[in-house]
Amino acid sequence: MKEYHLKTIKQFVVAGSIAGSAALLSACGGSEQAAGIAPNVYTDSLFAVMKADRTNYTKLVVKRLGPAGAGAVKPDEHWEDIPNGTLLPAQMFRAGAEAVAEMTDDFTYSLQSKWPINSQNAPKTEMEKQGLEYIAANPGENFYGEETLGGVTYYTAVYPDVAVSDACTTCHNEHKDSPKTDFKLGEVMGGVVIRVPLKSS
C-alpha cells in the first residue's frame, strides 16, 4: 500500500511537470511555429513550470510527509532501497527531465554542475561551461546564448540551481563523490540547462 502511495505521488508530480510543459508547448504552437515568442521568454516560461513543480514537490510532499512533517516518507538519495523512500527534489527534477526526453525533441533540460556528484552531470559543451561559470559568478542572473551542435543551432539558457536548505549542502559536502565540500546555504551549486533547437544550419 505504501509503495503504491509513493508511486502515485511520483507519477502525480512527474505527470504535472510534463502536463505543464506540454501545455506551454501547445500554447506556443511548438518550436516550428514559435516565431511569435522570443526564445528567452519561451525558456523562462519552461523554467517557471520546472521551478513551480520542484518547489511544490519540496513543500507539499518532502516537507509535509518527510521527517520535518508527518514522517511517513524518507527522502533519500537511495530512495529505491528504502521501503518508504522518496526522491530528493533534485532527483525528482531529473526524473521530469528524463520523462520529457522520452516524449519530445522540441526541447531538453538537465541539471548540471561544475562540481557534480555524478560526472554525467558535468557540462559537456563550451556554452554549458560558459553558462555555469556565468551564473556562479553572478548569483541570481541567467545566461542565454546560441550554439551549433551537429549542424543544428540551439538556443541555450542556463538558470541557477541554489543550495536552498541544509539538506542540499550537507548531502553534497559529505558525499564521497562530491568534488566540492564547502557549499554554503544560498550558494549557486549548479544550473538548469534548457536547450531549444532554432534551425538547421
Partner: peptide, 15 residues
C-alpha cells in the same frame, strides 16, 4: 539584497 538575497529572490527559487 544583491549580495545575499538576489540569488533566490531574482528568480523565485524555492518559492
Amino acid at each position: 539584497y544583491q549580495k545575499n538575497c538576489k540569488v533566490c529572490h531574482a528568480q523565485g527559487i524555492n518559492g
